[in-house]
């Protein structure tokens, strides 16, 4: 086991999301709906040294196995995240987050004149580039990238 994993308590059963950009753990928790009181214990490690990212966050969710589909929702803020499913202290499944072609309901459109900010409709975006991440609003056709993505999650 790599030394940095010792910084967070090992979980017996659940999901470990690794390689979250530093500072984004709370957004990850919010997007995955893990703020409810019945969603199990969360173990958070923030500002952990990382070869890939410099500094990273790790979120461990006890007692819950997230599906690939659920985890892909965090692709916009943690496109390089890796996910481990743990059972009985052992990793039984491993996958990486994938940025989908189409994103619905996660991001708000930053354009105040966009119809999605005025009518009862869930905002939708087409992914036009993955690295760097760039999205185009399905309605107003403006592109969103960088900080504007984070600010509108």
């Amino acid at each position: 086991m790599a030394p940095q994993n010792l910084k967070v308590e090992v979980i017996s059963e659940g999901t470990v999301i690794d390689h979250i950009p530093r500072g984004n753990w709370l957004k990850v928790v919010e997007i995955l709906g893990l703020t409810e009181s019945n969603s199990g214990t969360l173990l958070i490690a923030s500002n952990v040294p990382s070869k890939k990212l410099g500094r990273k966050d790790i979120v461990k969710i006890e007692g819950r196995h997230l599906t690939e589909e659920e985890v892909n929702k965090i692709a916009l803020i943690a496109p390089k995240a890796t996910v481990n499913i743990v059972e009985d202290y052992r990793i039984v499944e491993k996958f990486t987050v994938e940025v989908p072609d189409f994103v619905e309901g996660i991001l708000r459109c930053p354009n105040p004149r966009c119809v999605s900010n005025h009518e009862a409709v869930s905002p939708k975006f087409h992914v036009v580039s993955r690295d760097p991440l760039k999205l185009r609003c399905h309605y107003c056709e403006r592109t969103v990238e960088g900080d504007d993505i984070l600010k509108n999650l």
């Binding site: 966009c114 119809v115 999605s116 609003c137 107003c140």
Partner: peptide
Amino acid sequence: RHPLDGAARL
């Protein structure tokens, strides 16, 4: 014809 961007798509 509508003043909001994206109105026609909706």
